[in-house]
Every structure is written in structure tokens, then in C-alpha cells.
Nucleic acid binder design. Sequence first.
DNA 1: GCCCACATGTAATCAGTTACATGATTCT
DNA 2: AGAATCATGTAACTGATTACATGTGGGC
Lengths: 208, 208
Amino acid sequence: MGAGDGDDSATASGSTLGYALLSLLTRGPATGYQLSSQVKAPLGHFWTAKHSQIYPELARLAAAGWVSAVEQAGPGPRAKKTYEITPDGLAALRAWLVVPPVAQPRSEITLKAYAANSGDPAAMAALYGQLAERAERMLAEYEQDAARMREAGMDHPAHPRFGNYAVLLMGIESQRTVRSWAAWLAASLHGGERIPYGGPSGARDNGY
Amino acid sequence: MGAGDGDDSATASGSTLGYALLSLLTRGPATGYQLSSQVKAPLGHFWTAKHSQIYPELARLAAAGWVSAVEQAGPGPRAKKTYEITPDGLAALRAWLVVPPVAQPRSEITLKAYAANSGDPAAMAALYGQLAERAERMLAEYEQDAARMREAGMDHPAHPRFGNYAVLLMGIESQRTVRSWAAWLAASLHGGERIPYGGPSGARDNGY
DNA sequence: GCCCACATGTAATCAGTTACATGATTCT
DNA sequence: AGAATCATGTAACTGATTACATGTGGGC
């Protein structure tokens, strides 16, 4: 089954990666190589893929008629292909968008916290201290990106890249959460005493 | 390869699922069936697995000497096995705990937000309104769980189930974030106008 | 000359889900 | 009598990562 067997008008429910690529292609035509770098920021904060997964998926999308490809003689042994979303692809994307997602997130840092008191308290405190610092750095970076986006008017829902801004806002909130939660956990494990969790708001005054 | 080839003292780096099961077994001995239900709350908010993945993984952990099994004649055609973590297993878990995690989260709701302005604004607003409501309900549930845990003293770092509390706190913060972000997105898409994001705390009015 | 960015693919493996398969005990 | 819970496994498939493979053009 899948694609390429002559029948392209079926229900053909694609993979999540396929829809992610279609979403990227609504920003304009791109090569597989460009998509694999565009999948870095801000989309990559919440969805990533390697080129080895992207190229076969683009071939499936093309076989389903959801993207069209034009070949140019590019560098290297093979032809460079620029992909564009088709009306069928856009329709499929629109149908997928309104299906409520059910997938549950997986978080390794939270999993490690579950086993926190099996580890050495000092080492665990150091680990979560580092994670809080990393979140702090990423937060600063994201805030700058967000400020640039607001200057470009991307915080308006009608802007064609409003989605970039929405994703970045989620990234900012997620990093804020990690920063305060990891700091609370580090302090708790370090002191060995009960510390009430204050939430991300208390740490919010070192703002922008 | 992996386990079962006679050599059990090697570095034998396990899978993330293996460490998740070891973490659960630090709470006490359990059968595969019990583990597959314990992997629901609170751990399941951030890590899940089906029984079809758990049983083979337990066999690998046993082959590596990280867990030991005792068989009792249980219901059904096969023997019921109760697993217990071994000193080797605990040492492996401790080593894994202090390795900084790098895996990036995948979030389908954020991915859909990236393509928000390819969808019908009213339908997208309705979707994110529903997601905000779901987050609200889960938040209320988690808050009750957290209150019960505090009554049981599980908010003290020395409590053997302090990890349960830490994971639940992260769950609460995550739901809070989703609630406010999804509500902001729904309102933005519905009104079609720029709305400053206020953040998850109601006590804040300094928009961007 | 060497490294990097551009550019595309395949093969092998690992992780995870869905479906198949069996059967005892307890509750309604 | 039927459904739910307890209990354990395998097979087929999909999703994702790591490693293999190739080759050009530009900057240092």
C-alpha cells in the first residue's frame, strides 16, 4: 500500500511528518535539503526530522499528488528537486489541521526526575541546575527571535507566518516552565528540605 | 545483539524504556502487567508504553542481570512473573540518571499551530478552544492529585516517592501553559486581530 | 589541498503501535 | 451468561535514527 500504486485519489492518510513538510511548503517552494534545515527553528523546537526521513517522505507525497517537483541539474550526481504544494496537498493539510491531536509527549528530563531519589542528590541537583541554565539561555534567544517577529508584524493572525510566532511563543513558555521547575528541583535535592514550588511567574522579573 | 549472548557484565547501555521500567521497580517489585498500568500516572503524562513493548524489554533486562524474576503459577496459560530490580540494575539506573538528556520533545498541537493560517480560522479557533478546555480539566485533576501527595508528605525530597510529585508538578505547569497558549491562539484566530500574550499567570498584565 | 555548504539518496537498525492469540478468576 | 480484570506473550508494520555512499563548487 502507501503510494505509487496507480491510485492516488484514495483517502491516503499521510504521516505526521508528511503534514509537517506540507506545512513548511505553504511558506513557499523548497528542496529537501532546505526543508531539512527549515525544520530547525522554530518548528524544530517541537518537531524534527533527518534528511534520510525527509527524502523518502517527499517521494511519497509526490506519488500521492500532494506536492509537485521540478528538477534542475544541481551539484552532485543527482538532480536537484524543488517541491511545491499542490491544491490536493493543501486540501489534505486543511483536513488534518482540524483533527484533534491525541499523541502524548515524551520527556526524558521528567522521566529522570521520577527516579530522582535513586540518584546521588548532589549529582542530580547539579544536573537540574544545568538544565535550568540551558533553559535560561534558550529563553533569552527565543525572546530575541520573538521581538524580531513582532517588529515584522508576524504577531498578527493575518500574517502568512503567524504560525511561526505561535510556535515560538509555545517554545518561550516551555523554556520558562523548565527553567523554574528544574531550578526548584535542583534546590530541593540540594537542600534536602521541602521547598514550595512558586511557579514560573516569580522568576519572570528579569525580563526583556 | 544486546542481551542474552552470555556476556552480561558489559557496558550494555539500555534503552530509555528499560530505564523507565527500572525507575518503576525502585518503588517495589511488580509484574509486567502492573508496570503497564503504573506507566499511566503520573509517569504516563510524560512516558508511555504498551504491554507488547514492556514484556520483551523485561526479558532483556533480566538477561542483562538488571532485574530478577520469580515465577508464580498465575492465571492463564503462562506463569506470572514478579520482577525486582537488582544491585546491578540500580547501579545502571544511577549512571543513566546523571547523563544530561538531549532528546527534543515532539508536540503535534504545536505543529498544527505552525500551519494555523492554512486552515479555516473558525474551525482552528474551535480546535484550540477545545484544547484549552481539556487542559483546564486535566489541570483540575492534577491539582487534586498534588494536594493528596502533599498531605502524604511526598513533597519532601527525602520521601521515596518524591519523584512522583516532581513529575506531577511538571504536568501541572505544562497544562497551565497549554491552557493559556491555546486560549490565546483561539482568541487570536477567532478575532483575526493581534492579541498580546499574557502568559499562564492571571496575575500578569504586562503584555509584550 | 582541505574543509564546508550544497544536494540526494539507500541500508541497517532501533523504537513504538496495532493486531493476533490464549486462558483463569471475579463481578454483575 | 457475559463482561471486566488479571496475566503473558508474538507478529506485522510504521516511525525515526545512524551509518553508508556520492559528488560539485567556493572560501581559506
